[in-house]
Amino acid sequence: MKLLETKNITKQLDNRNIIQDVNLYLNKGEIISLLGVSGVGKTTLFNIIAGILKPDRGEVLLNGDIINGKSGNVSYMLQKDMLLAHLSVLDNVALPLFVRGISHKEARKRAKELLPFFGLDGFEKKYPAQLSGGMRQRAAFLRTYLFSDEVALLDEPFSALDAITKQDMHKWYIQIMKQIKLSTIFITHDIDEAILLSDRIYIMAGKPGTLVKEIIIDHQQIEREDFNLTVEFLYYKKEILQLLGTN
């Protein structure tokens, strides 16, 4: 079942066509990636799906309802973790619940139950400045999840981390997604990350940006711990590199 869908999304900014006729869909429980070079319009597309930009043409559908220009439906996580320095970790992750008008007590209770799940048990009273990079990102991810457990947009969430932390985060992410089954759209320009984490990859290229190819990653392979060291993985990588190169 299609949970989220975009139909012919087109957007101009400053009289320049940024993206043209973008059609994509996201099934329930699926992880898909948008892969493309910087400046191809991935973030613009995200802003449109998140409802903070209105498309010039086209529609964003969530469960069949048009949500053009309406924020608050899908959650959005950026490269910067944007944890608020003046709030405790618990209040930071409960923030979307506060915004939704849920009482502080109830919101904190709900957030607290999920902390161990995100490796943040015992850190609820700490401030973000006291956390490591990976923990901050996990807290930001939990905040995103509490915002919407339906659809999450993740805009290069791991790109600010060092290589080793990033690898740990990938492993952790694959683990947790098995349990929470959060339908996710990723933005990334890291090809390895896209192949490793996604069920499907959309390649975005050109000016204005369009979706040039959809690649389905064979799900059986993803379970394997060392998937990124297999021949299949390299085939995917080769295909993607060629696509990015020719456009």
Partner: peptide, 22 residues
Amino acid sequence: DTDEIKMMGVMGASKLMIYRYI
């Protein structure tokens, strides 16, 4: 921080909430 204000906007926060939390 304008990015934090934007984030609150994505969450659907009112102006009052942006003052309160940011």
